[in-house]
Each structure stands twice: as C-alpha cells, then as structure tokens.
Amino acid sequence: MSEKTGGLLESMQARPEAMGPRGVRAVTSRVDGDDVLRVEWPEPVDGEIVLRHVETGEEREGTGLTGLRPGIWMASHRGEPLATDDPGFSLDGLLAYAETPRDREIRAFRTSIGTLALTVRAVEPYVEVTAVVSDDGVIEVKGTLAYGEPVEGPARLVAVARKGPQPVSGPALFRGRHFEGSFPIAPMAEAQAKRRMFWDLHAEVAGVRLPLAARLDDVTEKKTRVRFPAQYVGQVRVRPYYTDTDGLAVALTVEEKSP
C-alpha cells in the first residue's frame, strides 16, 4: 500500500458519520481462487455491490474482480458502506489462494470501523516459509511455493550475502508446491569479513531464485516479534530472522571475547 493510499484510507475510516455501517451486513466476505468476491448474507438481498478505488474514485459494480487496479477498494451496497463480520483472515484460505499461479493478489479485509474493503497488489512467485530449524550446524527450512507453477525435483537452498562473499548453498527438494532444504552455517562464518553481515535466503531451481518469506499469516512486525535460536561458529553468532519486509534472512555477528 502506498503512503498516499494509506493516508486516504485512514482519513475515510476516521469519519464514522460519513462511512459508518448503516446498511446490510455480510456474514462472510472472501476472495476465491478465481478472483471473485464471495459474500454470504444473513438473509437474501438485492442490488449489486459497488467497489470504489480510494485514490482515483473509479467505481466497479459487481463481484468479479478481474482487472482491478492496484490499491484499496471500498465496498458499498445501495449507497451505504458494506459492513462485514468477517475479519478476512484465514491462513488455510490464503494458502489455497496462493496455490494458483498469478501476478496479482486480491485480499478482502475488514476496516477499523467494520466495513468491507479489498487490497490489490502485484505479486511474484516466492516460497512461503512454514518452518525454520536452526540447530546442529545447519539451518533447515520448509515452505510452500506461492503464486508460481508447481515444481518437481532437486533444488538448492541458497544464502546470498548482501555484500562480499560468494553464495552458500545446500541441497533442497520441490515436491509440487512443497519445498524443503538445508545448508551449513560454517561456510558463512568462515567468510565473515566484518563484525556484522547479512544473508538473504532463496530457493533456487533451474537457475531461478525464489525469495523465502512469510507473508500470508497475520503476524505483524516479525523482525522484532519472531525469534529463532542462535548458533555459534567460534565467536560468530548465526541467527535466522525476518526482515522488515518479512523476508527470511540470516544475521552473522562477531561477538567479542569475554575478559
């Protein structure tokens, strides 16, 4: 979401007298794999849902979402903001949605005043991380391929330094959408050329690198809230972590000797 879009959305949500849910209320409101908004009503209603783009004011009638421009779209029904009881989050639903190859993601969500909105953004294939194990001199990662075509066969789990050393990698495997791989931490520690270094993790298959990240859950500020165990190679501490953009990376820090 752009800064401008976020500001406009906050402004609209801050005026309950203009935006408050006074019309019908949806029980559930989700986007399916075909980019259609599926709404469950407590009782039958007539009239179409209208979507309005927050930045441009463009309007779209109906629940077919193909072709929506990126940004935030607010939903209304018969001229009133469409209230919803659905927070819009289902990890299983989002994982199922990500199993469809696509270059654009559409999510339904409930605003702070309880109305339905959609967010549309461009996406590229990546591996959604489902498990990280840091132990016994290796880092192991499991995940699910999101937004890309299924892959079968051997791959690599690759750690790429942001500056300096050559990549470090280990064996990995794709089974359809399931990914798992591991790599040793010693080569990274041996390449330590300054006090702190950072390595970003990728799945590599057929010469193509796919970022590893955790973007589908509802955990915010993962960088400070999710902590993985650290390992040590001599004085070098090795710890996986999530970046500001929820990418999976590894931080290596040389710790000073105790006096």
Rank of each mutant, 00 (worst) to 15 (best):
L95F: 13
A214H: 13
V160A: 14
L51V: 09
V205P: 00
V54N: 03
R177K: 12
Q231E: 15
V138P: 01
R121Q: 12
V127S: 01
G6H: 09
F89M: 04
R52P: 02
V54Q: 05
E99W: 02
T28H: 02
D46Y: 09
Y242S: 02
L51K: 08
R196T: 15
S11C: 00
L212V: 07
G57T: 11
D86Q: 04
A161L: 07
H53F: 03
I113C: 05
P87L: 01
E43S: 14
E3M: 07
E3G: 00
E221V: 03
Q231H: 10
G62Q: 08
R215S: 11
A98L: 04
L9E: 13
P211R: 10
T119Y: 00
E124V: 12
R52I: 03
R175A: 13
V50C: 06
V138A: 08
A14G: 12
T66V: 13
V133K: 11
G20H: 07
T111Q: 04
R15P: 00
G33M: 10
T119I: 13
R121M: 08
T115C: 13
V50K: 13
A161W: 14
T5Y: 02
G247E: 15
T253N: 06
A249Q: 13
E17Q: 14
V54C: 05
P44N: 06
P167Q: 05
G181K: 05
R60Y: 02
V141K: 03
L95G: 00
D218K: 09
V39P: 01
V226T: 14
M12R: 15
G207C: 07
A75K: 03
A26P: 11
V158K: 13
G47F: 10
R60L: 02
L91S: 03
